[in-house]
Design a protein around this nucleic acid. Structure first.
Lengths: 242, 242, 242, 242
DNA sequence: TATGAATGAGGATTCATTCAT
DNA sequence: GATGAATGAATCCTCATTCAT
């Protein structure tokens, strides 16, 4: 089992038992064990495509190949389903990131670069990036999701990046910059790009030239990482990236 | 205060406001003229707050102080209402921007700075910024809106910024950079910030430190404008902002 | 003034006064006097085209070139407007028919033929025929109209035809047939044809061969009139047209 | 009584009816199978009574003893529901008629008489006859229904009758008459009668003597069938029924 | 467990009628 | 008289969720 698919998903005893078996389960059994994952996959796809409110529970079930009722067997409500999707796709990554920061040896610039690249590969360049779109658009209509997301994603992610920046500052590799603003500055353009690709960028509209993500990313990385540097030289000193 | 955006009214009999004016126009008449603006204001507020799909037509009417039916007297559908909101809040600004570019005398960096500051004052720092959120989140569910927005906003806005960048390059003030990507790079962080303020930033969540927009903007402007410069000096030369 | 346009139309003082004038009225005055007629014309057209319930009051007003409010100035409700339309288009004709029967000299077969031809020219072949469609379709939804129509049209029309048939029988020109059934048998095919022309016959549907009304009528007349004859000869006796 | 037309139920729990059956099929299942028929029955009743546009979907559901939502589970729109009603009540009959014509042995006059009597028993004298009223009155407002009805009813029905008439002519039993007009002449009075019974005839109006359908029909049949005959004898020959 | 039938609150839009000007 | 702005009841259809089987 991949670490990313770990998520215990409350209300899903199937997953739990799955751990105790290896191979021998009959097909039907295996299907049953795979259910939660299939549902999460279907849900991610649809949520990202249409948003949370506009996604019909039945459609999720259908795409996962089960009946409407079955969906509710695994997740007590659409909202809980969404939370599970978030946890699986973003939560696990943050955990990994924490690990990475803790064990990392080397220059903090490389650490940040690694974190950001990982994010891009595992989220930004993935359907999972669409979760940001959903949150952005719908938190205000679902206050409970707002708190959930703040607690489980925003705060931990911010912590993660701040800790990396702080590490750099502490080790004298980065200028002393405001942590939160810097973290934000690092991620904003990446997220924005991801966002774009899941909205207007995904629409078959005429007359809009598409963007080249890779190119933009390279530029951005180059820019901000350089901005972070403590430049002993420097004509116009610091303050840059805050 | 612009006269059109006045009335907060709510079921207020016409007579009430009529008294405040020296104008002798018949009350009914004045109301009629004010309606569209009142409706647009209410609609902007609600659309930004809840999104397009989640905003009920009746609620817009109510907030504008009229009945459901009246809304449909002025706008034939929720979709058209939304378009009107977009045109008023973004369309007009782009037109102004075109004018500004055409008449501008001076360094292109200042031109860009002016454009961006104007955008921030009139859109980014305004409810109107929420329109981006709506588009981002809902275009895929409303294909007609997608095309409308591409035609009336994205393309013109892109043109506008590209023309300013091109001006700088032509006049030797900017490095030769890819136009679209640069335009995007200029706006992305600003838009992202605006976006954020209308979503998670607007939620009463515990544990999230709010961002300081002004500070972020200053940094961003400083950063990108410097990145655009042709630095004849420069240890590490160009390529930076592309 | 044509006798058919006589209808006093309650609630229409304009018409009343109109009688007292000859020519001198200024344009505006004349318009005012023409209003009721213009409204009735517009109403007939639309009612016939779309039915009673599906016709919007505003559309009637528009087609008559006045505002919605004005319509209600002349007719207190859509229902009253409809009644006025019926009276003008069918009521007057029945009155004329009564007159015709009373004064007719000659064979009753010719009298019937004349009545039926007049009906066809003045109703069946006219938009007015559509009124039957409306009644047929909507009386059950508008009980008040049902009674109105029975009182002002059905009963008088039935009386009219029965009286003509009775005249024939009394004068020994027709066989002794049941009056009502005969009257019905006389009119049914004509009305059905008229009906058809205002519904499926008016639809731009592919694959339906249109009917030739004149031809059908001729046949029908020939048929039923012969059936009414007292045939002193006769192999297979009477009973035919009852 | 056909089992399908049974249930008048109204919110009746499944258990009630289940008790009456010896069948052991699970209650839910049986209900599911019965639903479409119950809905069609309710729909036919209401459509005939009030017309298509004036019938509320919810009312149909109610009369079938289910909720609004359930109706839409079986028929995706009111229009489709109507089509289903038409197909069941008229479409099937036409198919049967085709069969009858194909297999019939004997005089074509008898064939026609049989067709018409069947129509009267299964449609004309039934609620189903009201469908004609609906079509007559509302096709112009529902163009899609117009085409549907032309394709699935008018054309096939016309074909059916024309083929019977043609059979008679070919076999020398009927005079050579124009097919379409003859078919029309055959059916028109019957349909008109049926129409009448579903409109004015169904209204509790005072002063209107009701018609005796059976009597009218007998007369009509006698009339037209005789009119079709090739009478080698005949004083005034043909032309009669065209 | 799994199913899918059933529910009913919810929301966009229409239109007869009123009434201030 | 005339106008047309305003109203709000009415109706179609959707979809999250429940629950009998």
């Amino acid at each position: 089992m991949r670490p990313t698919s770990s998520a215990p998903l409350q209300g899903t005893p199937a997953a739990t038992r799955a751990a105790n078996r290896s191979e021998e389960a009959p097909t039907r059994q295996r299907r049953k064990e795979a259910r939660p994952q299939e549902l999460l996959d279907a849900a991610l796809e649809l949520f990202v495509e249409k948003g949370f409110a506009a996604t019909r529970a039945e459609e999720v079930a259908q795409r996962a190949g089960v009946s409407k009722g079955t969906l509710y067997l695994y997740y007590p409500s659409k909202e809980e389903l969404f939370k599970a999707v978030v946890r699986q796709n973003l939560g696990s990554l943050i955990a990994e990131g924490k690990e990475a920061v803790a064990q990392f040896q080397g220059h903090s610039g490389d650490l940040l670069a690694k974190l950001m690249q990982t994010w891009w590969e595992r989220v930004g360049n993935t359907r999972a990036a669409g979760i940001h779109k959903i949150i952005l658009a719908e938190v205000r209509n679902f206050p409970e999701l707002a708190q959930f997301y703040a607690d489980e994603i925003i705060v931990p992610a911010d912590d993660l990046f701040c800790s990396a920046v702080l590490r750099g500052i502490t080790r004298g590799e980065f200028r002393a910059l405001p942590l939160h603003e810097t973290a934000q500055a690092l991620m904003a353009p990446m997220i924005f790009l991801a966002l774009h690709q899941h909205s207007v960028g995904a629409c078959p509209v005429q007359g809009c030239t598409a963007l080249d993500p890779e190119r933009m990313l390279r530029t951005h990385l180059d820019l901000v990482l350089r901005g972070l540097e403590t430049r002993p030289t420097a004509g116009q000193p610091a303050e840059t990236a805050a």
